[in-house]
């Protein structure tokens, strides 16, 4: 799969967000500054129509914060965000509302993301009427179309969320996102709460809808197998930063950053022969825990867990720059 070359729909440059942690009384008395959690730092990403950008990383690497910034649930405190060339962070009032209509989100938790007291039809009708997507008389017909698009039965409109299974609820969430005819969908771990058998159905639904509607899709997950399946391009995040970003197939075939290599090494393989081959190559599995983002290690944030770390990695943080592989990598040891 190679991504279609097109005009960028959503473009982030240097996006960053940190959260001030609560200071204890003792720290206040001592005049110590409060701790700051840098959830996301200096992230660049671009996604075009009909393209899927996969974002992978372990829990706590800032994926969700990034997703929430893209839909303006969190206001970034650094960087720019452009939608079809327009500054998305400066939008207010009606313009901001139109931005929300064009950039939608599918949430991780299919249980918490639907209002338990609203019938599916009511929720869809609300979105359709607030944004005046279709005239009032056509709302019922549009709801039927939307339900059909996500392969839910027609009578789903009269039912409450608790009457559906996790996978069906996620379809409802997707229908809601689609109702306002967005150009971009940010999917924040949309299948990680679902059974494996259902995961494939939902991922296939995303792919089908993307092809049909030409959606730009940002697919966030910790599951590399999914990204491999769905993404055209992939960004790997570690402690709030992108460490490698490139075309999905090529990058998974020849990962450059030791972290990406380790993540790929951690994917359980059913094929025994293949496993024997890869382990023979000496791909190291990840050691240790993700360091606290409150107190990131100096130098390269990955160096305490990196099997190849050298002295330079302990003192100097590598920046994301084009490597010999043809895509950007943030590693001192990457061949240039």
């Amino acid at each position: 799969m190679s991504g279609p070359v097109q005009q960028a729909v959503l473009e982030a440059r240097g996006l960053g967000k940190s959260f001030a942690m609560r200071r204890g009384t003792l720290d206040l008395l001592r005049g110590r500054p409060g701790a700051v959690l840098h959830a996301v730092s200096d992230v660049d990403l671009v996604v075009s129509a009909g393209e899927t950008l996969g974002i992978v990383g372990e829990s706590g690497c800032g994926k969700s914060t990034l997703a929430r910034m893209l839909v303006r649930l969190h206001e970034p405190d650094a960087g720019t965000l452009r939608f079809q060339g327009q500054d998305a962070l400066a939008l207010t009032g009606q313009d901001r509302r139109s931005y929300h209509r064009r950039v939608q989100m599918v949430f991780q938790d299919p249980y918490g993301s639907l209002n338990p007291r609203m019938r599916v039809g009511e929720a869809l009708a609300e979105a359709l009427s607030v944004h005046r997507v279709v005239p009032k008389t056509e709302i019922a017909a549009r709801i039927a179309t939307l339900l059909d698009m996500v392969h839910l039965p027609k009578d789903a409109a009269q039912r409450y969320p608790h009457e559906f299974s996790g996978g069906q609820r996620q379809r409802i969430g997707i229908a809601r996102a689609l109702s306002v005819e967005p150009a971009v969908i940010i999917a924040d771990e949309p299948v990680s709460a679902l059974d494996v058998s259902v995961q494939a159905q939902i991922v296939n639904l995303f792919m089908e809808l993307q092809e049909r509607l030409g959606l730009a899709l940002v697919f966030i997950t910790h599951d590399l197998r999914l990204v491999r399946h769905i993404a055209h391009r992939t960004a790997v995040m570690y402690l709030g930063r992108v460490v490698e970003q490139g075309p999905a197939q090529a990058m998974f075939a020849q990962p450059v950053h030791p972290y990406t290599q380790a993540l790929l090494g951690a994917v359980p393989l059913v094929d025994v022969q293949h496993r024997a081959r890869t382990s023979g190559q000496g791909v190291a599995a990840l050691r240790g825990e993700l360091p606290s983002p409150l107190d990131p290690p100096p130098g390269c944030p990955f160096h305490p867990r990196c099997p190849m770390a050298v002295e330079r990695c302990r003192v100097e943080r590598p920046v994301l720059k084009p490597a010999a592989s043809g895509w950007p990598v943030a590693c001192h040891l990457a061949p240039v």
Binding site: H100, M105, E126, V130
Partner: peptide
Amino acid sequence: GACRVMGY
């Protein structure tokens, strides 16, 4: 959050 993303 979904409501806010909807721009309500």
